[in-house]
Design a protein around this nucleic acid. Structure first.
Lengths: 344, 344
DNA sequence: CTGTTAGCGCCTTCAG
DNA sequence: CTGAAGGCGCTAACAG
């Protein structure tokens, strides 16, 4: 409990004060076999007294592992990502690992991160959160040469924890269809510069399939693709409305985008759900207070599982043993933003 | 670009292949003085070829610094905290530091973190984000013996970057008062178990002072203190309404709480701002879409400045040189949730 | 300008 | 059960 401004006590201090050798002190502290109970007690007493903590640098240099795991995450200010990080951090720190945070947001960050790979040689594993990577970026990650997992997404053939975005999308669109809607618009989000990101494809394909299965022709005039932001969703909704497409419902790729869409609806003097039904995806905490019908996904859990996956592959490195990927379930949460179409 | 599964190349590999000594290789790589251009080129070529990266453990063991900074943050899933982290991370990584993330949420996390101090000996400095600490926790933090700064709050006499919560509160309440409101309710948030946390005091005191200056008696029936959550705000608003306190406006300590309050208002069949005006604090991204009048605070900037503060104190450790704390400005953002009182 | 020599603080055979 | 000695990979004087 004493504050040591000058030099932290070293193992040799402990050894000297306890009257044993360095080796013995080390063994006692690490609970290794072959130390008498009395000796260990003596050493630990000194540790306590000196408030000794081993230098991780030295410890790890000698041992050859870092005890750290890199967490690569974009948009950390958004609920989804923060929630994911919360789950991951808890699991990792409980397992005794430290989390090295790499926030990769804009294209510059991105180029910098994958170019320099600042986490290289600093971690035992790496978790990438819902991050669409291009081919080059994936290759760069591999040169880190450590275990890897994806949370809320999928990267090459690495193990992952995520949801089935297609199923989630179907839940939302099928709900609208079941209510009797036919003129259903979609506001789809797409990552800039990464056209192939699966999430979008799947949530979009769910829409297309669901409509077709009901024999409803999908009308390009009812679809808008935007870069993720409530502003863009607001504008897209406004656009959809003025284009005069006679929609009775709108399926939005996420709740925060739905917020933007609802704003545009209100601005246009339309009521939800009387005039237009709205359904989102995520079950973001605000959804409840917006009375928004949405598809719930367990976010924190995805983080927890991704963390367990890398922990597993760190520990089982030697044996041939591939961790299992996990797809978590989603469920429709019906609130007040959806209803039967007026003229339905 | 080659992936090295077996053993990463070491400095001695580089030295051998370049035909120089370890020391020279090290100097060439670290841009130290006293290396001929030709030699350096040769060494760097080998570095490139081998895709060599120095072992941070060894580097730091030898150098005596860690190149890491601890970030202690609660509630990372909330916008405010995520935004703060984004600002801090960017600044630190640009300066070449790695960020060790410690998410401290519930009481258990808390006890664990301050008990074990997992960051001890692992970092050169520590940034604490808007975290109310009790006396014991602050003392524990000191034993880490490194530079420290607070972002969005204040800790003992450490330098900090935050806003003037009193001024922010005044901006909100004075606005309501100026519109003619007199029956103004307040929904105040308080951290559990930390009654003395300044933020709440200041935002609350702003309310009290503002009312008194206008000669409006503050009525305890118009005030509710809750633990931070939109749910609690919802309930508090409901309670305020049913208590029959004849309020015409409500001042809420933050935008996310205002969302809950607005939900209760809507549920009660009341309209904003026709029946009740609502004002929040933060200028959370959703505020715009809720058409919520609020007080803007620069969150990311607070993070950036806190980061600069610790960087400064790391570099200026030797000289007597205390970094300056910073109070960032806030401003009222008037939207559609506030208006003159009906009977005003 | 470059090579040699000690450590940095701890873990880990290998003897005793 | 315990001590002595070497080494993890790199940096930093100190000589040449």
């Amino acid at each position: 409990m004493s504050s040591h401004a000058p030099n932290p006590p070293s193992l040799s201090d402990v050894a000297r004060l306890a009257g044993v050798s360095l080796a013995t002190a080390s063994r006692a502290i690490n609970n290794a076999y072959g130390v008498s109970a009395a000796t260990r007690r003596k050493v630990l007493a000194v540790v306590e007294q000196l408030d000794f903590v081993a230098s991780p640098e030295a410890e790890r240099l000698a041992r050859g592992v870092t005890g750290r795991i890199a967490l690569v995450v974009p948009h950390i200010e958004r609920w989804y990502f923060g929630e994911m990080v919360a789950g991951i951090e808890r699991e990792l720190s409980t397992a005794g690992f430290d989390v090295l945070l790499y926030h990769v947001d804009g294209p510059d960050d991105r180029r910098d991160f994958f170019g320099r790979l600042p986490a290289r040689r600093k971690v035992d594993a790496c978790i990438v959160v819902a991050f669409p990577l291009d081919e080059d970026e994936r290759k760069r990650l591999e040169v880190m040469g450590v275990a890897m997992a994806a949370a809320g997404g999928q990267i090459a053939d690495h193990p992952f924890a995520s949801i089935d975005d297609y199923a989630a999308g179907r839940l939302a669109v099928d709900h609208l269809l079941a209510l009797g809607h036919r003129r259903i618009a979609m506001i789809a989000s797409c990552e800039p510069n990464v056209p192939g990101w699966p999430v979008n494809n799947l949530r979009t394909r769910a829409y297309i399939d669901a409509m077709q299965e009901q024999g409803v022709p999908t009308d390009p005039n009812l679809v808008r693709e935007i870069e993720w932001s409530a502003h863009n969703a607001d504008r897209a909704m406004h656009d959809l409305l003025t284009t005069g497409s006679q929609l009775t419902a709108v399926y939005v790729h996420s709740d925060e985008l739905a917020l933007g869409a609802m704003h545009a609806l209100r601005a246009a003097g339309l009521r939800v759900p009387e005039d237009v039904s709205v359904v989102g995806i995520d079950d973001h905490p605000i959804a409840e207070f917006l009375d928004l019908t949405t598809v719930h996904q367990p976010v924190r859990e995805q983080g927890v599982i991704a963390a367990r996956i890398v922990l597993q592959s760190i520990h089982g490195e030697n044996r041939e043993f591939a961790p299992q990927s996990v797809l978590l379930p989603t469920r429709l949460v019906v609130r007040g933003s959806t209803a039967k179409p007026r003229s339905g």
